[in-house]
């Protein structure tokens, strides 16, 4: 049973009907196939209409869709010989951030990604993708390792944010994020980031200081969740929809501001409807981005990366 978002309700109704018809035993009197294809065309039309005019708040829902491909799916689909590496060498392993060596289109790479989990067990184990300091320290360790062995780094960003907890604070959540940002800006090897779902605040930027920042068409990337922003500035969580508009968190707005470098098109109806198509597009975009930066001398590459971030904020939205 697929999950339907609020704005997909009319499509859900149609697709339900199609399913019903398909299972109907009619004895061959009515031409079901014709009816089904008619309904299917209508459903497709509705879907393309709905996804053609998603509001920022709709996109927040799509980005959080439970069936959306997560980092672990992208790694399964795109990386051969993936060899996970664990632990921060100081306190513990943090399953909210996944990382390891692997081969991406014949190249050895280091892959690091936020992983939210896909069922109750894995969600709990991965803390819903909200990393503790150990996760960021592991990310930093793996980035340094990549630098040591001249391996390009690919990061897949998909998190609501860093975990707000007592232990996380005690063990230096802020410092861990700061060091991870610093590591991104220190690398002499290429780093390409893709915001695949939710790019939530400090927890996201810790992994997204990249030579090329790519973003899926319906992903969101923001300084604070719309709900958090609404509760602070509107003093009501109900204003989340307005906050989503005001924050300009869509890939389309972020490209205009030159905060991201490229938008990766999603299949009709979002990445969750045709996961493999979406992940292939992601793979192609990452490969192209890597091709652009591989071969540039390490010092130059790092200087260019810093310069790119220093230039941000000088391009107004309009």
């Amino acid at each position: 049973m697929p999950t339907y978002l609020d704005f997909e309700k009319p499509i859900a109704a149609l697709e339900g009907k199609i399913e019903e018809l398909r299972h109907l035993d009619t004895g061959g009197d009515i031409n079901i196939a014709e009816e089904v294809s008619k309904l299917q065309a209508k459903a497709d039309r509705l879907l393309s209409q709905a996804y053609g005019k998603l509001t920022p708040w709709d996109k927040v829902q799509v980005a959080r869709h439970p069936d959306r491909p997560h980092a672990i799916d992208c790694i399964d689909h795109l990386i051969e010989d993936f060899t996970p590496l664990a632990g921060d060498r100081a306190f513990s392993e943090d399953a909210a951030i996944l990382g390891g060596l692997g081969r991406f289109r014949r190249r050895s790479v280091m892959v690091i990604g936020n992983e939210k989990g896909s069922d109750t067990e894995s969600r709990v184990r991965r803390n819903f993708g909200m990393a503790r300091p150990e996760g960021y320290r592991k990310a930093r360790r793996l980035m340094k390792l990549a630098d040591q062995f001249q391996l390009p780094v690919i990061t897949l960003v998909d998190t609501a944010g860093a975990y707000p907890g007592i232990g996380a604070e005690e063990r230096g959540q802020a410092e861990a994020i700061a060091r991870s940002i610093e590591a991104c800006m220190t690398l002499r090897v290429p780093i390409v980031s893709a915001i695949v779902g939710e790019g939530g605040s400090g927890g996201a930027i810790a992994l997204a200081g990249a030579d090329r920042v790519l973003m899926m068409e319906h992903a969101v990337y923001s300084v604070i969740s719309p709900e958090g922003c609404a509760s602070i500035l509107w003093r009501s969580g109900d204003a989340a929809k307005q906050a989503a508009e005001a924050l300009r968190l869509t890939a389309q707005d972020l490209l205009k501001m030159k905060v991201i470098d490229r938008i990766i098109d999603e299949p009709m109806g979002g990445a969750h409807r045709q996961r493999n198509v979406a992940m292939d597009a992601l793979g192609d975009a990452i490969a192209e981005a890597l091709d652009e930066v591989i071969g540039i001398d390490g010092g130059t590459l790092r200087a260019m990366r810093r310069e790119k971030f220093l230039e941000m904020g000088k391009t107004p939205l309009d």
């Binding site: 700061a178 605040s201 400090g202 930027i205 990337y221 300084v223 968190l249 972020l254 905060v259 941000m312």
Partner: peptide
């Protein structure tokens, strides 16, 4: 918005 995040 995002530009504030980029200040980090």
């Amino acid at each position: 918005g995002i530009l504030a995040l980029m200040q980090m």
